[in-house]
Structure formats: C-alpha cells, structure tokens
Design a protein around this nucleic acid. Structure first.
Length: 497
RNA sequence: GUCCGGUUCGUCUAGGGGUCUAGGACACCGCCCUUUCACGGCGGCAACACGGGUUCAAAUCCCGUACCGGAUACCA
C-alpha cells in the first residue's frame, strides 16, 4: 500500500510556523518513501474560516515549495457525508441522541472555563453518566421527530481503554474513564472535528497521520470512531510543539506576525533557508551537518529523528536586531552567500524589481556586471531586502546615507571634505580602472596627505555607498565604475546631512 | 484537578551504560587577517533539573520530587 499523508490546516489565519513545519515533515516523509502528500483544508468551523486564510496558506505552501499531489480536499464539502456517518452510527446503536440543551460558553477564556469545570467535577464525574445514553430507541425517535434538538454522541463502552503506538511518543494508552462520550454532530446538524477528520482520512486513504502533539489526546477519540466504523486506524506520529520564548505555545493571537510564513517571505528570506531552519526545529539527522538541500532532507528524513521535547523559537520583540530567531537569520545569510550565484540571481532580480531598481540592461548588456555586483555585495547580507537596502547605491543614484557612517567615517575627519574631491581629481587621469591601479593612486594620495589608507577608503565608502560596512572598497569602486566613483566623491550631499 | 508528555550550554541540538575532563551550530566575548565590516581564521564563556536507587561504571536504566508544556468543548 502506498503511503499517503496529508497536511490539514484550518483556514483561520495565515500559515503558522508550526503548521509550516508540520507540512514540511509530512512532505519530507511522503517524498522519502515515495508516497503521496495531500492537502486538506479543514474549514468546518464556518465562523472562523475564511477564504483569505485559505489563500494565504496556499501561498505559504507554494513559497516553501511543498507541492501537493491530487486535488485539495475542502472538508466542508464533505459535511453531508459526515452527517450520514453519524446517523449510521446512531442507527447501529453505536451513538445516541443527547437532548441536553447546548450550554453556551462564556466565550473569552474558554480553555480556563473548561479546566475549571473539569477540576470541579474531579473524581465525581462518570464519563458514561448521561441521562440520554440509554434512552429507549422509540422514545429517542419520538422526541427527535417532535423537533426537539439533539446532538449525537458516540457511545463509548463502559470500560476499557484505547491504545496506539505513536511513532514518536511510543505506546499511548487512555482509559475510557478519561474520555467523554464525544459529540459527533452538533444539535444544529454540524459535524464536529473528530468525526470529520476520521471520515476524511478514511476517504482519502491516509496511511500516516503526522501532526502536532496537541492532538495526542484527540487521537484516542478518533481511534474510538475508527473502531465504531470498523476501520483500521492509520499510523500516528505526533510532533513536539514550537514554543515562544515565554514557554507558551507559539500563537498567532499572542505573538502576531512573527509566526506567519508570509512575514519571512516578505522580509527577504529564501524559502530554502527557512525550510532548512524549520527542519532542524524538532528533528535531527543525528549528525553535525546543519545546511541541507531539500533533496538531502528528503533523503535523510525519518520519524526516528523527531524529538519528544518542545523547541523554543527564539526571538525578542523589543530588539530590532533579534526580531526573529538568530539562527534563522544566520542561516538565511549563509544561504545568500553560499548559494550558487545562478540560483540566487532570480531572487535578487525579483527583489530589485519590487523595489523599482531593476533595469533591463541587467539582463542584457550589463548581465555580467550585474552578476559580479551581486556576487560582490552578497557577502555580508542577511536577507534579500539588503540588495535593495544596503546595496541600493550599486543600482541607483538615489540612496540614503547611514547617519552613523557619516559621523564615524566622514565628519570625524574634516579634511576629507577637501581630500575626497581631490582624490576624484586624480582618478580622472587614471586610464586603467581596475583594482591595482586604483589602489596605487589611493596609496600615493595617502602618503602625500600623511594619512592612513583606511581613513580615505572608509570616507569614500560613505560617499560611494552610504554605508559603514560592505565589501572591499577597491572592488566596490571598480565595480561602480570610474564615472560614478568620481561623481560621488565630489558630492557634498553627505556632508550636509 | 485528572490524563499525557517533556527536562543536556541563553537558543537549536549530538549523545541510548565505559570512548563524556559532554561534541556541533547560533548568539555573545577576545585575538588574528584586513582599507571598513556583519566575511574568514583561531580561541573563550557556557549545560546533563533535583534526590534516591541499580551497576565495577549512569547524561544514558529504574523510582520519586520539582518545574515546564499539552489536553480537557455541541472549537479545530
């Protein structure tokens, strides 16, 4: 039987980091064993699901490069089937109607409310204790026919336990006493999550369910449904959670943008690097390698390498430099400087286009110059954004000057205001505009002025690129060209800032 | 409360009885290189939650404690 896994997000927001990792692991698992990776949108919560979320999730998956096999399944399309299944269980006596009026939660803090209720019932409550559980069939039918609203609950046996072997967490057992007769169908006829998931997983012939550890206890309920349906449950593998620095589950509501995949795409991350980073959050190949291509990940991925302990996604909302996990940033920089140039170029082009810095010549007469420039400046960049930010001066005359650079490398040496235009003068007569001759001119100039080469070049860096840091200044001058170098050395703009 | 799970440097992690005076990566700090630097090189700081066992030997196995997380629903 071919392996079939699914990624099943509920469209209640953008693609979350945790979800993205779940998708990644499912994807890697499927590709590793040559199985199918399916996609199912769990939009049964009509109140919270939005089309926009679905779009955003799809976009995120596309960006990450996880192409799914087969058509996307929308869970809401199967609601009728879910209802039929619930009714069938009712018919077979494996479920029953519960006429208890629906209790509306006080909203806000539902979790706390549930926990409080559970605590209050502690030791007292018998999970099988429902007055409608053993209501005679004819009476139940009669009340239903009279229009009295009811929910359908699964009739769990009086005693026993469920168990399954989790690929990550090992043998999991749960006594029926711990599980309430779960509702399959709401009193308004709406099928509930556990029912829907089981029905769809059966229909989609899912063989392996890989999902977050927060579903560990749901699994027992779902197994009960499989059993009632006389179906064999799939294999299960639960993933450790991704926590925020505070130690709580990383959540959209509390942590905001930081958890959204689109944030990383928009911040200039390479999908390949983020994927790589995600793969290492809760999984390891048991070796010291850290940088992996998708193919390598696919080849090495195994459920055995998944951890049981949660991982912290480290970031500091109050620190601009640490806005997201250090390692994610480092890894992106590593990708930017080590990716084969031809693989990086398309991303840079895209970035320049969106920053309105792109010129057709870069793809034509200046293609060689362009490639060389990208290669030169990428060395110290962290994100794609840097190509249009710090690297702007290479593509446009309209660039900003870093205030700190002006202070430190320009105004601290007032002589530079005369010297730099003077240096431009010397360059005018330089025939061979390349590294060594440029350096000779600079050296000679420094000797005359009795100053250090660093002072001149750092000052020049500010005028030429607006930056304090960057690649070798001589290489930058060479790359910028004689005309621009001379023109910018003469400019007084930075001095007046 | 109950059930389930977890606990190795600040973070991600290696490790599965002796090779562990615990390895790598990020971050941080030094030094070097250098025209600057966020590159690179070298080095440093820094961890087995605690207590009992078992064993010749425990980060590794067992028990307990603490702490953390998840779950608990006519949400998904």
């Amino acid at each position: 039987m071919t392996t079939r896994v699914r990624f099943a997000p509920s469209p209640t927001g953008y693609l979350h980091i945790g979800s993205a990792r779940t998708a990644l692991f499912n994807y890697l698992y499927a590709r590793n064993v040559g199985g199918k990776f399916l996609l199912r949108i769990e939009d049964t919560d009509i109140a919270r699901s939005t089309e926009e979320s679905t779009r955003s999730i799809l976009e995120g998956l596309e960006w990450l490069g996880f192409s799914h096999d087969e058509e996307i399944v929308f869970q809401s399309d199967n609601a009728d089937k879910h209802r039929v299944t619930a009714l069938k269980l009712l018919e077979e006596g494996k479920a029953y109607r519960d006429f208890t009026p629906k209790a509306e939660p006080n909203d806000k803090n539902i979790k706390a409310e549930i926990a409080a209720k559970a605590r209050a019932n502690q030791g007292e409550k018998n999970m099988r204790d429902n007055e409608y559980r053993d209501l005679p069939k004819d009476e139940s039918d009669k009340r239903a026919e009279s229009g009295e609203p009811f929910a359908i609950r699964l009739k769990i046996a009086m005693s026993g336990k469920t168990s399954f072997e989790d690929a990550v967490y090992g043998l999991q057992e749960r006594d029926y006493d711990e599980i309430e007769d779960l509702v399959l169908l709401r009193s308004d006829g709406h099928p509930l999550y556990n029912l829907a998931v089981v029905c769809d997983d059966i229909e989609m012939e899912i063989t392996d369910v890989i999902r977050g550890q927060d579903h560990l206890t749901n699994t027992h309920k779902q197994i009960l449904i499989y059993e009632a349906l006389d179906k064999t449950p799939p294999r299960f593998a639960h993933l450790p959670l991704i926590l925020a620095p505070g130690g709580k589950k990383l959540s959209k509501r509390i942590h905001g943008e930081i958890v959204s995949m689109t944030t990383y795409r928009d911040a200039g991350f390479l999908a390949a690097s983020f994927r790589n980073f995600l793969a290492l959050l809760g999984w390891s190949a048991g070796e010291e390698q850290e940088i992996y291509t998708l193919d390598e990940l696919t080849e090495k991925f195994s459920l055995d390498g998944i951890h049981r302990s949660n991982a912290t996604f480290n970031f500091d909302a109050n620190n601009e430099k640490r806005w997201t996990d250090d390692k994610a940033i480092w890894m992106n920089a590593e990708y930017i400087r080590t990716l084969p140039l031809e693989d990086l170029l398309p991303h840079v082009i895209k970035e320049l286009k969106s920053a309105k810095l792109w010129r057709e010549e870069y793809d034509d007469d200046d293609a060689e110059w362009f490639a060389k420039t990208v290669n030169l400046i990428r060395e110290r960049f962290y994100t794609l954004k840097d190509f249009s930010g710090q690297g702007r001066a290479f593509f446009s005359e309209d660039f900003d000057f870093d205030q700190k650079a002006i202070e430190k490398n320009l105004k601290k040496h007032p002589d530079l205001q005369q010297w730099l235009p003077e240096l431009a003068e010397r360059f005018e007569t330089l025939e061979d505009w390349s590294h060594d001759p440029i350096y000779e001119v600079v050296q000679k100039f420094c000797e005359e002025k009795d100053t250090k080469v660093g002072v001149i070049l750092n000052g020049a860096r500010v005028l030429l690129t607006g930056q304090m840091v960057g690649p070798s200044m001589l290489a930058a001058m060479e790359q910028l060209g004689k005309d621009k170098t001379i023109m910018r050395l003469r400019s007084q703009i930075a001095w007046n800032e």
